[in-house]
Write a protein that binds this DNA or RNA. Structure first.
Lengths: 214, 214
DNA sequence: TGGTGTGAACCGATTCACAGCA
DNA sequence: TGCTGTGAATCGGTTCACACCA
């Protein structure tokens, strides 16, 4: 089944696929070792059947009795996520969170690079965090165009988020990872994912409530 | 249906419930106004039927023809999440991310308080970030016991995460929000939620792949 | 009239069980 | 024998449609 058409994959399916990729890097297997669906299942907390379904979904590459060849599996994941090359991303908002994101080692390992950072605080503009130059947010549009960037991370305060996102969209950004609380609007065709840390805490609260005394 | 038994709610159900709470704060309605399932649906991007199903699940409190009284809805949400009082949380790891979390205004608004922060860097211990004293991680256990804390946020580097989580568990922590990449192990009965920022970016990559040229 | 509450229908995702292959 | 690939069965969440109520 070469060049199979990529069927749509559910949100949780994408998430699991990404997890398999992480686990694969974490188990230090050589590229020519094999990994079984059961091993991947154990490492990620899913079931072996689930893993197999997910993997076959993108072209069958397992070998009966042996498992999946690590190098092939990695290649498949790279292709599915379109990560043949490092993905350049821009960052809006260089406060503590923005700085943390620039320093975040996980991005580099996963072939993401923060190619440019923007802020509107004149005291920050022109300085560097790690090796990333902080630029004036008024140059957003031209920088995005020059660099051909498609993805952005928003790490500005809640009240500035919608404006920042509007600017990104009109500058041609197609996918946004937003850390500001709230539910910013984006036009059809722009991908937006929100990470709301206090909602994550709420989930934990809910679980504790169900478990404890109550 | 007073004191209804709280049925288990799906992960996504909990998430939506938390979102309704946020939206409720954001729409500045008075406590005695009413809000319809349609309004909540628009604000959160779900369907009206979905909103109603979610809300009735925790006791019916809508009024036919009018909607849901804001004050009652808020009270219900507060009860479901066990947030009658401010929830004290501790933080492990006061790097950029940890500092960002301490400064994060969203927590305070949602009745979460970072009651104590820990690090193992002697230069940080004894100093303050905002009004939070940074303590020696070796005092973790006693502080948790003294303060009666149940929830923790882990913002240490990847390699230190499993150790930090083990320490938290043996100190009696029951719920952990982890920002380090990877899949730390926790014993049965401890709640763990992972926020992996590069997996979030991967999801966006996948979506872009499907949309663009490809 | 407007909007809730809910059974029924629908749909997709997960699990099961096993045939088939190295 | 060990492990994949996959149809079939199952499960649970979402949507639909409408009765009912203020």
């Amino acid at each position: 089944m070469l060049l199979e058409m990529a069927k749509e994959l559910s949100t949780s399916g994408i998430y699991r696929l990404a997890q398999y990729g992480r686990s694969l890097s974490d188990m230090n297997k050589s590229d020519y070792d094999y990994v079984s669906s059961q091993e991947l299942a154990d490492a990620t907390g899913h079931t072996a059947a689930q893993v197999r379904k997910d993997l076959t979904h993108h072209g069958s590459l397992g070998e009966a009795g042996k498992g999946y060849e690590v190098v092939k599996l990695k290649a498949m994941l790279t292709r599915v996520f379109g990560k043949e090359k490092t993905i350049n991303v821009i960052l809006i908002g260089v406060g503590y969170l923005g700085t943390a994101l620039i320093s975040h080692s996980g991005f580099q390992q996963q072939k993401f690079k923060i190619a440019a950072a923007f802020d509107r605080d004149m005291r920050k503009i022109g300085t560097y965090v790690e090796d990333v130059l902080i630029r004036d947010v008024r140059n957003l549009e031209s920088t995005i165009a020059d660099m051909g960037i498609k993805m952005a991370i928003v790490a500005v305060p809640k009240l500035a988020a919608q404006q920042a996102i509007d600017n990104l969209v009109s500058a041609g950004i197609e996918a946004i990872l937003n850390f500001a609380p709230g539910h910013p609007n984006v036009p059809e065709g722009t991908e937006l994912r929100n990470v709301d840390m206090s909602i994550e805490l709420d989930r934990l609260c809910y679980l504790l409530e169900r478990k404890d005394g109550n």
